[in-house]
Write a protein that binds this DNA or RNA. Structure first.
Lengths: 218, 218
DNA sequence: TGGTCATATGACCACCCGGTCATATGCTCG
DNA sequence: CGAGCATATGACCGGGTGGTCATATGACCA
């Protein structure tokens, strides 16, 4: 949790701090991210960081939370009214990909927390994030089974994990593949893409959910 | 590449070295793995490592290669005679999961190479490994489309990446979920599992490939 | 003006890393 | 017995890290 000192910072200074710290943690896995590098880029003293946050993990955890907060703020309400659950998935993952393009650094930061790490604190963070996605998908599946949109002979626990592989790692990889790059390359040189290329690449979410619909409908 | 000095080592000494190094690199991401830790556990001098291998990356790359060599050696021929491509997948991934249980440390090492890393050399290794899986799946899909086992309206490139998500991250996660653990926990305390539990957990490969078959068949 | 207090500073600490190299060891063979 | 050679050693190097703390700054108010 940031200290009051941090809250009291002049907004522009605070935002600059936030963005620079975000970039550092987005750049590489937690253990490689360097507080020293952040303060160097900002031109402030290292001690300042420790007046804002308890320690490195505290800063990282807050940034991860901030990534989530900004994403929901940026996307607005995601509820596309009750209806076909597959349409809901399509919309949700299309929004997710759109957000990835709009805010690649925040998105990458959010992915960093899912990486394995030796640090016990980071592992705890990761597990809780994974559990959240997993729970959401399990609930989606269970609801689908209740309404008849999903086969009833599929074990929900297995299903949630398999679907997560398809819609997380798989979808992102396919999306970036369509953009003609991979995650690393994209973030090293985020290029401005023509709108039609983006629109076409977003179509991969439909391909993925179509696949899923065929696999899951009774 | 290991030096001749390494090849000439007494077999038992060499194997001890290999296993200890493997455990260290399996324990944590490349950048955190420590040569110092390896030599400490082995009770040898650090200089010895550098008489066997050029540097840390050389050692890691060789271990990754060794993981592959031991896996194919351990599984024997994987070709289940020409037939249903889905049966082939089922067999391949069942074998893969079985191997994961039999050799969790080697398996985990093989997964480490797929993790993001700041190190340029490791990134190169990773990309080539990913490309190999990707190429294999693309070829599987193209062959399936030729023989009519796979829908022709699915773009092969998208398909390969989505399937990879489902069958790599998704399947492994579901498998470990059935065993009542996650990858970290399992490797920290690899428990001896009753045969029936293992057999039941292997069934998750069938669930995954069934899902895939529904999604991909014309 | 002088006192108070939040904020900012950066030298410093202990610790760890990968990698080097002069030196020591011990086996083999003439 | 030595000479020669492959092998083993570990102190040492330069460089990095997260984190600390005595000190300095400067805004505000009596």
């Amino acid at each position: 949790m940031p200290s009051t000192t941090f809250e009291n910072l002049a907004p522009e200074k605070r935002e600059r701090f936030v963005l620079e710290a975000r970039d550092e943690f987005a750049r590489c896995p937690y253990d490689q991210a360097s507080i020293t590098a952040i303060v160097k880029r900002l031109g402030i003293a290292k001690g300042s960081v420790y007046q804002y946050f308890d320690d490195k993990l505290d800063l990282f955890a807050w940034l991860v939370g901030e990534a989530g907060r900004r994403k929901v703020a940026g996307l607005g309400s995601v509820a596309p009214a009750g209806g076909d659950p597959y349409a809901l998935l399509r919309a949700a993952y299309r929004d997710g990909l759109r957000y990835w393009l709009a805010e690649p650094e925040w998105s990458r930061l959010a992915l960093r927390v899912l990486e394995p790490s030796v640090d016990a604190g980071v592992s705890r963070l990761r597990r809780s994030q994974e559990a959240a996605v997993h729970a959401w998908l399990e609930q989606w599946l269970a609801e689908g089974q209740r309404t008849g949109a999903v086969r009833r002979d599929l074990p929900v626990a297995d299903g949630a994990r398999l679907v997560r592989g398809l819609l997380s790692e798989g979808l992102l990889s396919a999306f970036l593949g369509r953009l003609g790059t991979d995650a690393d390359a994209f973030l090293e040189a985020p290029s401005d893409l023509p709108a039609h290329a983006v629109a076409e690449a977003l179509g991969v979410a439909d391909v993925a959910v179509d696949l899923l619909e065929r696999a899951l409908r009774p």
